[in-house]
């Protein structure tokens, strides 16, 4: 089997498996898996920037929240139906990531992390400040009557799972396509050695900006769908914790692999789900996982898989 065929078989196989699961799973894991697929789409977006371009952002929650609130607020205050509201969320995410990218990419390394952290904090505080429209911490519910896309009722668990799967496979394959194109190869070159990429004549800034916008827009798309599928938008999705979580998922699954973000999200979601039954301090698991991963497995699960078994894993 050629390399491309193997790669397609692996990822199409994953999507097909997830499709079959919709018909066999009982209600509770079905709901969980729908949630995991939307969050994994967020992690895929984060991975474009962190895993493939080598830029560590500590503020991706602002893009997730931009999508969620762009969708939710246009629905709530402007009376948009679901389709245009999703586009509004997407547009808000793209615009925000362009502005943040133009500013933050003037810095590098540690300063880039702190700048993204500060911008995200400003977005979070702005959501609290305009509590009259956003309902702040409490958030708002998106009524069931509005959660209809092209005649499909998204609050129905079966439909919801399908839409989440469609979103997930769209993100999965578009990022797979992106990184196999020449532009995607340049991103990896920047990650490996920025000076050398510049010396070879590539416009490093433009490529990094493209990566920030692509990453932010995918995150916003995931945020918009999260709000629409689960019917709620709240300020907690813009807080620091939601910037740390995609980093954790990607690190656990394997930074710079296509399938890694999904594995990481699946793993961490169930780890937290199981431990939150035992203690309210479930974020302890996240902390321990972060420390252990940086110490012993900086490549993550899929990274180890690539190192030991499947050298061709993209």
């Amino acid at each position: 089997m050629s390399e491309t065929a193997r790669i397609l078989a692996l990822h199409a196989g994953l999507v097909a498996l997830l499709l079959v699961l919709n018909f066999v799973l009982p209600a509770y894991p079905q709901g969980n898996l729908a949630r995991i697929m939307v969050l994994a789409s967020y992690a895929i977006g984060y991975n474009v920037l962190f895993g493939y371009t080598g830029l560590l952002s500590l503020g991706h929650a602002m893009f997730f929240a931009a999508g969620m609130y762009g969708m939710g607020l246009s629905m709530r205050h402007l009376g948009f139906p679901a389709g245009p509201a999703l586009l509004a969320g997407l547009g808000a995410g793209a615009a925000l990531s362009l502005v943040v990218g133009l500013l933050a990419l003037r810095t590098a390394g540690v300063a880039f992390m702190i700048v993204t952290l500060m911008f995200a904090q400003a977005v979070y505080l702005a959501i609290l400040l305009f509590g009259k429209y956003t309902r702040g911490d409490e958030g708002f519910v998106i009524p069931q009557a509005d959660r209809v896309l092209a005649g499909i009722d998204l609050s129905d668990p079966f439909n919801r799972y399908f839409v989440a799967l469609a979103l997930f496979s769209f993100c999965l394959f578009s990022v797979l396509w992106l990184i196999r194109r020449p532009a995607g190869r340049v991103l990896v070159a920047i990650r490996e050695n920025e000076e050398r990429a510049r010396l070879l004549g590539y416009d490093v800034f433009a490529h990094k900006l493209g990566a920030v916008v692509a990453s932010g827009t995918i995150s916003a798309l995931a945020g918009a769908f999260y709000g629409l599928l689960f019917g709620y938008a709240g300020a907690s999705f813009a807080a620091v914790q939601y910037s740390i979580l995609p980093l954790l998922w990607v690190l656990l699954g394997g930074a710079g692999t296509i399938i890694g973000p999904f594995i990481g999200t699946l793993f961490m979601f169930y780890l937290i789900d199981l431990t939150s039954g035992l203690t309210s301090a479930y974020m302890l698991i996240a902390g321990v996982a972060l420390v252990l991963l940086t110490l012993f497995a900086p490549q993550g699960l899929a990274g180890e898989l690539r190192k030991r078994l499947w050298r061709w894993l993209p």
Binding site: G287, L290, V291, L292, T294
Partner: peptide
Amino acid sequence: IVATIGLLY
């Protein structure tokens, strides 16, 4: 930075 985020939690 990632490790100290872990320590934080």
